[in-house]
């Protein structure tokens, strides 16, 4: 059975890029969300194996979403934070929010696959 992934990103370009990359590796994309609230709803409903999570969304920050999902709701999905922000302080603290990996954009499809595979 395919592993499932939810993509939360306000960028249509990134949603499409991640979706195509992971589908080509056999992942089942169970949903995509362009904002935090829809992302949280989909994550709680489907509890996917993996969530790719943008850090800056129109309605909330990715770290807030991770905190809700992992710390408050206790879901077990693995989360990769995908962000263009590569600040040392943020990268250093991602585990505090229940995030398994912090991937700084830009990256190639091969880099995305490698980092996802490292989590499973």
């Amino acid at each position: 059975m395919s592993k499932t992934v939810l993509i939360i990103d306000d960028s249509s370009f990134m949603r499409e890029f991640i979706e195509e990359t992971l589908e080509s590796e056999g992942w089942d994309v169970i949903g995509t969300a362009a904002d935090g609230n829809s992302g949280v709803e989909l994550a709680l409903e489907h509890q996917p194996d993996l969530i790719t999570l943008d850090n800056v969304l129109p309605d909330m920050l990715g770290i807030e979403i991770a905190k809700i999902l992992k710390k408050e709701e206790g879901i077990t999905s693995k989360i990769i934070m995908i962000s263009a922000l590569g600040q040392d302080e943020m990268i250093k603290n991602y585990e505090d929010y229940g995030i398994e990996y912090y991937l700084v954009k830009p990256f190639t499809s091969e880099e995305l696959i490698e980092n996802v595979n490292n989590l499973f």
Partner: peptide, 29 residues
């Protein structure tokens, strides 16, 4: 979609450098 994402990424690349040098926390909307 493409130009917005490019702007997001290359702006954040510079912003991250400023943040690291200035010891600031900074986001781009």
């Amino acid at each position: 979609g493409l130009v917005k994402e490019i702007a997001n990424i290359i702006t954040a690349a510079a912003m991250s450098q400023f943040a690291n040098h200035f010891r600031y926390t900074t986001y781009g909307d």
